[in-house]
Amino acid sequence: MRAALPTVAEDVVAAVIEEVPSYTDAFSGPMGETIRSAVQLALGGFLSQVSERRREGEPRVVPAIEGAYQLGRGEARSGRSSEALLSAYRIGAGVAWQRLSAVAVENGVDAEVMASFAQAVWAYIDEVSAASVSGHGDESATAGRVKQRLLDRISRHLLTGAPEKTVVAAAERADWAPPSTLTAVIVPESEVGSVLQLVHTGTLQATDLPELDAAVLLMVPDAHGRRRSALLRAVEGRECLVGPSRPWLQVRSSYDRALRAQERGLEADTEAHLPELVLTADPEALADLRTTVLAPLSGLRPASAAKLAETLRAWLLHQGRRDDIAAALFVHPQTVRYRMAQLRDLFGDQLEDPQKVLALTIALGVSPEPSE
């Protein structure tokens, strides 16, 4: 059988090439020689194991098992699946059994020994297959971790404002093609897996950001224009916040917008909340503006001042339409008439001055605290 090994190995290789499409071109070049050597090593290891009649508990033939493990790693690096590798093992085992059993018969091996020999063949194939699958899995996991580290580096550079050449170099190392735009999406940790299945495969992730509690930042490529509606559908009902699309190197501004919306307790599309986000961009300035333009109300009791401020806001937003104002405030139109008379007494000509009306509209654009 040892004398027949080179021929058996070539027959195994030929059968694998013919019957497993993934290996049609795999046996050319340096990798082909590696695989051929692995086949011969596996066959030689099997014969050594059988001839030594390894008893239970004795060590395996380490070189053959190690060779199978390294073969699995190499196949993962070559992009072939573990399923293709297992198919090759099954086909190779069948060919090896046919050739080696023929040699055994020619040499007068009896039926009982042949049965034991067959059992040993398939037990050994299970053993080397497991080693190869383990190597394939380890290499895939390692490659995945390396890839993720490279992608994480891109995310970190984008969020910290690294120079463009630094970010571009990181993208090249990660083999990540820069998109036209990136859109920041804040996603609860429990929803990340579901959302990733619905968005662009090149989406970047940033986890453990100090400003996010139990949430992850996703940066989705090319979700601008009409594609934004698809992104919004993907996150609908998931308590996500979607920032604006920005040129990919400026995604930090999209993230900042989403963070401000989160601080305001807003949800879903930040583009739907632009007035409030603009008005609350500088809370101190807004507070000062309110104090200044609502000064005529400062001498009133707080409850009365709040009701009149609420009425003035409705009057501005509804352009003086009394019935609409009454409906918005859940009061009678006569109440609106009475309150507006008070406001005109307090503000006088200011309610006719375009600049004063603009200031009042901005100051009251965000609804004040409800009155008692």
Rank of each mutant, 00 (worst) to 15 (best):
V199M: 10
V199I: 13
H200E: 15
T201Q: 13
T201Y: 15
G202R: 11
T203K: 11
L204R: 05
Q205I: 07
A206S: 15
A206Y: 14
T207V: 13
T207C: 10
D208V: 05
L209A: 06
E211Q: 14
D213E: 15
D213N: 12
A215L: 01
V216Y: 09
V216S: 13
L218A: 07
M219Y: 00
M219C: 01
M219R: 06
D222F: 02
A223C: 05
A223Q: 04
H224G: 12
R228P: 00
A230H: 07
L231Y: 05
L231T: 00
L232H: 07
L241G: 03
V242P: 02
R246L: 03
R246I: 02
W248P: 04
R252F: 12
S253N: 05
S254W: 04
Y255K: 11
D256N: 12
D256E: 14
A258V: 07
L259W: 07
R260E: 04
A261C: 13
E263V: 08
E263I: 06
R264Y: 02
L266D: 01
L266N: 04
E267R: 15
D269K: 04
D269R: 06
T270F: 06
A272L: 12
L274F: 03
P275Y: 06
E276R: 11
V278T: 12
A281W: 07
A281I: 06
D282V: 05
P283E: 11
E284H: 04
E284D: 14
E284V: 01
A285C: 02
A285G: 04
L286A: 08
L286K: 07
L286H: 01
A287T: 12
L289H: 00
L289A: 02
R290Q: 15
R290W: 03
R290V: 01
T291N: 10
T292G: 08
V293G: 02
A295T: 09
A295F: 09
A295I: 05
P296L: 06
L297T: 00
L297K: 04
S298K: 12
G299V: 07
G299M: 11
A305K: 06
K307V: 03
K307T: 07
E310Y: 07
E310K: 07
L312T: 02
A314Q: 06
A314H: 00
A314L: 00
A314I: 01
W315F: 13
W315K: 03
L316H: 05
L317G: 00
L317T: 02
R322C: 07
D323R: 13
A326H: 08
A327K: 10
A327G: 06
A328T: 10
A328V: 03
A328C: 09
A328P: 04
A328I: 01
F330R: 11
V331I: 14
H332K: 14
H332R: 12
H332M: 09
H332A: 10
P333F: 14
T335Q: 14
A341T: 13
Q342R: 14
Q342K: 12
L343H: 02
R344T: 10
